[in-house]
């Protein structure tokens, strides 16, 4: 186990400590999903793997994009691209809260000095057809994590229930490192030969993507791509389960789900471009949700997602 006794000094050290902590607690440390997502929950390791009865424990960093939150790198707390740390354990262990508090200690949040609180916050993702009960966790009045017991995903009851933790890494790290502006936060060790701040790495991209999200993205094309992703998702799910080439049953739940992720991100971009009216919004969200549900239905028929045989 790594040495957590001293305070972390950089953004990446906080990530490394979380990785090390959760690895030590038995989670599979996965890598980020290779698609544009709005939050760590969209990673199939959470969305799809929270379905079915098979036990699961994973942790990973997920780069996340919220096009409407772009502030050209100027706002001290807001980014259109940021990192979430995600932990998902199924079934949720009885000491999930203690495990979580241990992870805070690992990144230097000492419970004898800080005020840590579990404040009611029910989580709901209308695009994923998912909801759960839990809290936002406050440290000295600041929300540092979201803690959720999944009850439903893609319209399916979660049995058993997964426990999900989401850490907003920039915000958490800024607090731990005492940074006033996200761009000023040290990314690697401040005394490294080439010390890099968060801004050294992301200020320019925040500018570029802010302009892209608000003004650059071609809305006609985005609309077309949305339709395409929607159609493609359906088309993939319409294949017969039996693959004639391999002779196996292969349901393309994950490739279809990729299209759901794509549609969701395209919707977020369209939203940032301001071309979706209030009434249309609900309709678009409903369309993405319909895809998510179909993928969840499909995943439940696969090896990883089906219910274990009940031994009488």
């Amino acid at each position: 186990m790594a040495d957590f006794s001293s305070a972390p000094r950089s953004f990446q050290e906080i990530i490394l400590r979380l990785q090390s902590y959760w690895a030590d607690k038995g989670c599979a440390i996965l890598q980020p999903y290779d698609m544009e997502v709005g939050a760590g929950t969209f990673h199939p390791a959470t969305t799809l793997r929270s379905l079915g009865t098979k036990a699961w424990a994973a942790a990973y960093v997920q780069p996340s994009r919220r096009p409407t939150d772009g502030r050209y790198g100027e706002n001290p707390n807001r980014l259109q691209h940021y990192y979430q740390y995600q932990v998902i354990i199924k079934p949720s262990p009885p000491d999930m809260q203690e495990l979580y508090l241990g992870s805070l200690a690992a990144i230097g949040i000492d419970a004898s000095l800080h005020d840590i609180r579990f404040v009611e916050d029910d989580w709901e993702s209308p695009t994923l057809g998912a909801w759960g009960l839990g809290w936002e966790v406050w440290c000295d009045g600041m929300e540092v994590s979201q803690f959720t017991y999944f009850q439903q995903v893609g319209g399916h009851d979660c049995r058993p229930v997964s426990g999900e933790l989401t850490y907003g890494l920039e915000r958490l790290a800024m607090y731990v490192l005492g940074a006033e502006h996200v761009m000023d936060m040290p990314f690697n060790a401040p005394d490294a030969p080439i010390a890099l701040s968060y801004g050294d790495i992301f200020r320019q991209t925040e500018e570029e993507y802010s302009r892209h999200n608000f003004d650059g993205a071609d809305t006609a094309q985005l609309l077309r791509h949305f339709e395409d992703a929607e159609a493609e998702c359906q088309r993939l799910l319409d294949f017969p389960a039996l693959d004639p080439k391999s002779g196996k049953t292969i349901i393309m739940a994950h490739p279809a789900y990729d299209q759901t992720i794509k549609a969701s991100h395209l919707f977020n971009l369209l939203d940032a471009r301001g071309v979706i009216s209030v009434t249309e919004r609900q309709a678009y969200i409903g369309r993405v949700r319909a895809l998510a549900k179909k993928c969840a239905d499909a995943f439940r028929l696969t090896e990883a997602g089906k219910d274990a045989e009940v031994v009488a």
């Binding site: 001290p76 707390n77 419970a111 004898s112 000095l113 800080h114 005020d115 840590i116 609180r117 440290c139 000295d140 009045g141 600041m142 607090y175």
Partner: peptide, 25 residues
Amino acid sequence: ITVANTQPSDHGAVILKGNQKVLTA
């Protein structure tokens, strides 16, 4: 006035500073 749920070893200096910071944001 914020209400902490603990008896901090530093009489709340860290907690207050954190809360102050969130408030400022």
